[in-house]
Write a protein that binds this DNA or RNA. Structure first.
Lengths: 285, 285
DNA sequence: GTTCCGCATGAATCGATAG
DNA sequence: ACTATCGATTCATGCGGAA
């Protein structure tokens, strides 16, 4: 890892002032979703959500490098039988403040929360909004290639006669280079849909999202040694993954219990080889 | 089928006047996406999209039954490196005009259009916006249940103790009726993500969406004998499926070539048993 | 060492009840 | 009338103990 992460305790609207201008390559965060209940963690009322978030967005704008990316994991709640509009209003407001709404990835959750209602089904997807400061930004697409689908395997088994002939004629010694090329071409570029299960009850920590989610975006938008920021650290999933991937991590958390937990986890942290897990494209499993 | 569909040639903004008030149970349509290029079919400029659509939405509001549903298949284009905002602006404007934004379904396309760009991946999902006139609307959830996941086959045999306890607390008399429901269950309710492949090259027409997409929503929101409207009929996928499912279909199309094609298809139409195809939930294939 | 199975628990939402 | 709280509903997943 690229050193101990920088962990800050406090409201990120204030603590972000301790982060330098143009110093962050990727902001990956999942802010508390709007909630009309009071006294809960981050219980921001849906109607106040945009006003609450924009000062933070201004700080994020300042600390992000021009070539950096901001990934916002968010989903609107149902209020009074309707999807609330705070997320799409937030997109419009972000654009007014200089952010480019480059893309909207979709997290397709394999295991959505159970339940049954007369007027809707279970919600099994969340938004991953991509914002940028300029049209040109860093993106390392080759880092997130996925195994090719089943069609390729069957295709390879029954390699066409012309392929074999063409191959033999070129190499002249049995199995040739073309075949190996095909065999090596087992990866393709992914789509803008990420198909993962939520981690319900993992060991000690239960994060809002699985490790693979920040891992995918960190691979896609940063290199080792780059800086990853999560202004709503929570249980620390993003900073943990970033540290394991040899990125500089900055995490801000307002609740002391979460902050202490993450801090303690890093105190006993031992550098280890990051276990690489593949993320498979949906529909190919 | 419930009779020959009602096919209207012309601009739906005008032709909708020929449809009675409160007569439609489901509007399912995929309007021409915004396109900055001129002289294309429905080439509405992105910046003018909302203004163009709202008069049509007003007519749709009039013809839809209070218990009816409007499903709008749409996706924003990339304009100048950004996702354009006309879709989310349309949602806000629809709500101002009395529509309820009940839900946003996701169509997760198994086989998305190929391609590679330096700053984005292939787009493999589209929005299916659900609008309603009131909180109570017709929804026949049992019609679209899907096979239960593999886990159930092995694990549901012995119902877990906690589930029994949960259930007893609710019913208060030994085995609740829900336990027997669970034991006999091989189908579960789906989620708000619809996982379908696009029809690559079916027959002659190249539809914007596969038959299963309107089929799913027609099953979910209408009964046989109900009325389904598609104001942007195109190649007629929705009205074809609706007719096969014994629903009254109304289709409006502005281009004579499409209109004639659909008309001809129905002239030679022979009532047939609709081939039932299951739609499987994502992650279970 | 494998496989099997019990078990808890989730970024949820609705309707009824209570203040 | 309007808001706060609570119970009921539901299904996929990983862990850990058992076979």
């Amino acid at each position: 890892m690229s050193g101990f992460p920088k962990l800050l305790l406090g409201d990120c609207a204030e603590k972000l002032s301790e982060v330098e201008d143009n110093s962050v390559d990727l902001i990956f965060t999942s802010p508390p979703y709007a909630d009309s209940r009071k006294n809960t963690y981050g219980g921001i009322h849906p109607d106040k959500y945009v006003d609450w978030f924009m000062p933070i967005a201004e700080q994020l704008h300042r600390v992000l490098k021009p070539t950096g990316t901001f990934i916002l994991n968010i989903k609107e709640r149902v209020v009074n039988g309707e999807r609330h509009t705070y997320v799409i209003e937030l997109i419009l407001e972000m654009r007014k403040h200089g952010w480019l709404w480059t893309e909207e990835f979709m997290w397709h959750k394999k295991n959505s929360y159970p339940g049954k209602w007369p007027n809707r089904f279970r919600d099994s997807w969340e938004r991953l909004l991509q914002f940028n400061l300029q049209k040109k930004f860093n993106m390392y697409q080759d880092e997130v290639m996925v195994p090719v689908g089943e069609w390729a395997k069957t295709r390879l088994k029954n390699l066409s006669q012309t392929d074999k002939i063409r191959d033999n004629s070129k190499v002249g010694s049995g199995f040739g280079k073309n075949v190996s090329n095909w065999l090596n071409r087992d990866k393709v570029y992914p789509t803008n849909v990420i198909h993962l299960a939520t981690e319900c009850n993992n060991k000690n920590h239960s994060a809002a999202f699985p490790d693979q989610l920040p891992e995918w975006f960190i691979k896609l938008f940063t290199k080792p040694g780059d800086t990853v920021l999560d202004p709503f650290m929570g249980s620390g999933t993003t900073v943990m993954v970033a540290a394991n991937m040899h990125r500089n991590a900055i995490g801000i958390e307002i609740l002391p219990e979460y902050f202490d937990m993450v801090n303690a986890a890093f105190e006993t942290y031992q550098p280890q080889l990051f276990e690489h897990r593949e993320i498979y494209e949906p529909g190919k499993s």
